[in-house]
């Protein structure tokens, strides 16, 4: 499709965009899980108790 418009991309380009969108969602889920892990570790280590003052 030599004259394809940006609204109508080639299948390869569309697949790449979909894959990139899926990657972004996957990474958001990973980051949410990592945030939970960090919070759990800090909580059980005791970092939320104010130790200095």
């Amino acid at each position: 499709m030599p004259f394809a418009s940006p609204e109508d991309p080639s299948p390869a380009k569309r697949n790449a965009r979909n894959r990139h969108a899926r990657d972004i969602w996957d990474m958001i889920v990973v980051c949410a899980l990592v945030s939970i892990v960090i919070a759990i570790v800090l909580y059980f280590a005791g970092a939320f108790r104010l130790s200095t003052g």
Binding site: D23, I24, D26, M27, I28, V30, C31, V34, S35, I38, L50, S51, T52, G53
Partner: peptide
């Protein structure tokens, strides 16, 4: 300051998580 600044703790760890996001992508 470290005890007081909960916003600073949040942003510091948030930045670490942002790095994970960008590195993964």
């Amino acid at each position: 300051s470290r005890d007081c600044d909960l916003w600073g703790r949040f942003t510091m760890h948030g930045w670490f998580v942002l790095n994970i996001f960008l590195t993964g992508l």
